[in-house]
Design a binder for these strands. Sequence first.
DNA 1: GTCTATATTTCGATAGAC
DNA 2: GTCTATCGAAATATAGAC
Lengths: 218, 218
Amino acid sequence: MKPRDAQHSERPARVNDTAQRRDEILVAAAECFMINGFEATSIDMIARRMGATKGLVYHHFPAKADLFFAVIEHGMDLCFQAARPAAEGPGDGAARLRAVLEAHALTMMESVAFQKVNTQGVEMHMHGASTPDQRAMLAHLTGRRDAFEALIGDVLEAGACDGSIAPGDVRLTVKALLGALNWMTIWYRPRPGDERAGRQAIARTLADTLLNGVVRRA
Amino acid sequence: MKPRDAQHSERPARVNDTAQRRDEILVAAAECFMINGFEATSIDMIARRMGATKGLVYHHFPAKADLFFAVIEHGMDLCFQAARPAAEGPGDGAARLRAVLEAHALTMMESVAFQKVNTQGVEMHMHGASTPDQRAMLAHLTGRRDAFEALIGDVLEAGACDGSIAPGDVRLTVKALLGALNWMTIWYRPRPGDERAGRQAIARTLADTLLNGVVRRA
DNA sequence: GTCTATATTTCGATAGAC
DNA sequence: GTCTATCGAAATATAGAC
């Protein structure tokens, strides 16, 4: 183990302190944005929520828009981390689609704040995206969203090939499936006493409904 | 026909002039809210969009929040007007559900602006709903949203009884179905050249997917 | 009924102390 | 690295002319 600087050896080891601080800000920001929306959230609110002041936030993020982008990007990271292994897992198209849908539903529930911020609309708040940096970030996020939809689309097409999934308009089907799940950011709110088993039950029921439809099978 | 006031008979008949003006404001507001969101939309923008000034808007609506509520209420009116006849129409549960889903999908496409404002979140912007009037309006809109979900839930239950629809968690199924359709406010934007037939095709495809699911039928 | 002008507040961002 | 103090821009709402 590398010895720490002798001059400050009495201080507790604070590895990656600034990264941790950044994450704390991200969580506080996600919660504020979720509750009030982008414009109605002031930097003061975010700082107060984590027991700090504006100066701290501006020390870690150059502007409010960058903070907003960082929140959405982190939410997307979580989506990919959950969905990609499921999409690339074993089984035929239908089995993998089920795995992806359940994983995505769980992601929605377990990071509602981050996901709802994404739902609020990336492009909306950056309509006049002033700086080139912001325009680039906007394009980057749009690209990742498209990539996520393509991930699901690929599973659908694989299923259409192996016969486990009914052929149809892939783009529109992806919108329908993701819409049903992403809509959870509108109505789902974690309850103090709820457990993972309960969330898994919801995820399974939703996936069932989407896979099998609502009409009675012959 | 009742004769108009003789003193002003030379003026062109302007029946319901203020009501028309109100509607114009409503449309302009819906479009601005759709593009920029509630907080980022200024009263000036709304006025400019209809070639007027702030004073006009404040003459018809006491505050920005009331205008926002009025937009959402009108959007809900459109939803009920389309869905209720379909829900109360002829046929078994599955047939009526199909009619409701297609009607709702069409409503989403043909009044995107109004519907997207609703998606933005009623409760979000009124978190601290200051005046009692605003709190009452908030409760009113929440009640109507619940009533709309109940409308669909009733059709589902009727279908479960007559055997046309698979039994299941009604509340969760309603959320899934409405989620898939309401999500259109996120991605659907009317194109200059699109026609009603195209929208109907989208509505039918979406309803098909939700009714039959995506896995291949045995 | 619609406009202009303005009072008042709020917030993003910066400067600089510690 | 975090805080206090403050500037300047923007927007809601109002007052009053026409």
